[in-house]
């Protein structure tokens, strides 16, 4: 087994070209190996010292989040909290303070678990990942990244350097926001039984201009809910929210396992989708709903 510590991006990319797997926080890779889920790769390159990859930068068309930005950073980052609160909701739910301090966004996305928390808000927000090799750079929409549990389209020598999230449009007085909600049986060290992320833009008159919802842990990958165009041009009232939940339930194909039965999961993903859409819409309308939404209303809210 070889283990190298990259101090420059070039080192890291060269190591990967030579067959090394990257490790960032190690909270998926090492823990999976310890649990016998997947053996440690024969060659590993640590990328956690590449400080440039931990930056969060506002750009003309959105935000560029370095792959090494941790959940702890993102859940409190003003740019994320203000403009992409759905991502902050998800980061704030990851594991425990210790997990959030070591776990990175790049690791979460590239680990490609269908139960990952940042996937649904990022997908709903239309995010893309930047993948680099020694001699190439490409940008892949998240909608095309994941191919199955723990699988994605990145080649073995491609390093995720950033996650790019487009800015919500503010043209013509529209207002946008996002939210992420998950079902949890306890308030820390939890894994999503089901979850939903929503991103919404409201027209000046308060009707829906666009709505995107993605679901956690109900299919082999994070999935987008389709057919939400039907809500465009209408207010997202109680009846519409109920319909959102029903559509989400219908489109999910959950399994039964130790955490929940399939029918319960199917029911709950509808509840989560409804709540995520509601929270995103209320935020877009100007209401301050604290991060994470899970502690603000619904499950386990403080009063």
């Amino acid at each position: 087994m070889t283990f190298t510590i990259a101090t420059t991006l070039e080192d890291a990319l060269a190591a990967m070209a030579a067959g090394a797997r990257p490790v960032a926080g190690g909270s998926d890779l090492v823990v999976a190996a310890r649990h016998g889920k997947a053996a440690l790769p024969a060659s590993i390159v640590a990328i956690d010292r590449l400080g440039d990859l931990a930056r969060v930068t506002g750009t003309d068309d959105g935000v560029r989040i370095g792959a090494l930005a941790t959940h702890a950073t993102l859940m409190l980052h003003p740019l994320i909290v203000d403009s992409y609160p759905g991502l902050a909701d998800a980061c704030a739910l990851v594991g425990s303070p210790a997990t959030r301090n070591v776990g990175t966004l790049g690791g979460n996305v590239m680990n490609s678990s269908p139960a990952m928390d940042t996937g649904a808000p990022l997908l709903a927000l239309g995010a893309r990942v930047e993948l680099r090799t020694v001699d190439s750079t490409r940008v892949v929409p998240l909608a095309e990244l994941w191919t199955g549990p723990g699988r994605n389209v990145a080649a073995t020598d491609e390093l995720c350097t950033a996650i790019l999230v487009p800015a919500p449009t503010a043209a013509g007085g529209t207002r946008s926001s996002s939210a992420y909600v998950r079902l949890e049986y306890r308030r820390a060290m939890e894994i999503a039984v089901v979850g939903a992320g929503a991103s919404i833009t409201l027209a000046a008159d308060g009707t829906v201009e666009s709505l995107a919802i993605a679901l956690t842990a109900v299919a082999p990958t994070i999935i987008s809910v389709t057919g939400l165009d039907a809500f465009v041009g209408k207010p997202l009232d109680a009846a519409a929210l109920t319909a959102v939940g029903e559509i989400a339930s219908e489109q999910s194909s959950p399994i039964s396992d130790l955490r929940a039965g399939d029918s319960y999961r199917r029911h709950c993903v509808g509840v989560m989708a409804r709540r995520a859409a509601e929270a995103a819409a209320r935020r877009a309308a100007g209401e301050i709903i604290g991060i994470p939404v899970n502690r603000a209303f619904g499950i386990g809210a403080a009063r």
């Binding site: 306890r186 820390a188 130790l258």
Partner: peptide, 13 residues
């Protein structure tokens, strides 16, 4: 037979 699937209460709870 693991602490992920056998859910103890945490301080946060």
């Amino acid at each position: 037979t693991g602490l992920l699937e056998y859910k103890l209460q945490t301080c946060a709870d």
